[in-house]
Amino acid sequence: MIVGKQKPLEEIWDMVCSHKNLLVFGCNTCVAVCHEGGNKEAESLASLLRMKAQQLGVDMTITHSGIERQCEHEFFESVHDQIENADAVLSTACGIGVQFIAEKFDKTIVYPGLNTTFLGAVESLGTMTEKCQACGNCVLGVTAGICPIARCAKRVLNGPCGGSTKGSCEINKELDCAWQLIINRLEALGQMDSYETLAPIKDWSSDRAGGPRKQIREDLQV
């Protein structure tokens, strides 16, 4: 899923404080799972901003709302008017949701309430870790199901580098060395022989390097 983290309240306040009528707008899927931008968190953030406005004597109306996903047209049908009637929307979706609103409502100012942090998994309640960088050319089949692109600080495809120490990455003892994990798993799977196969120079054209990506399923076009 897409993981996000709420921006500091001061930063949010500086963005939105000049608007008379602000809608704080939640997205109830990925960023709700990480308890940062769901409809419940949008409601809490709206309360905090109202308190802030009251403390500072700023006259503004702050409402809140939300939908299941800010990245699909169909979910916006019921909230169209709410968004159009607001001076500005503070979206607590990931960057995709914020941009989707900007594209759909060309006269509505929209601000990001979150920093989109990474594509990751929920390790345990409140702990999310990065697993994928959407490079568009998956190597997990030859790396024992552990991604060196997302999880190695130098994204080395033929690791580990010389900085791997007692299972940790050279940049942070708390961070697992992805290549140590790969080797542990290759050993457990009885596939250590494959370690010596050189990973070829990667084609990064399917990654961000190739420019913004678009994917079309002709069979689903209407």
């Binding site: 580990p160 900085g163 250590m192 370690y195 010596e196």
Partner: peptide
């Protein structure tokens, strides 16, 4: 001397 020691020689071979 880096870890894991068991792949240090395979890594040289690579």
């Amino acid at each position: 001397f880096a870890d894991p020691f068991e792949i240090r020689v395979p890594r040289l071979a690579k």
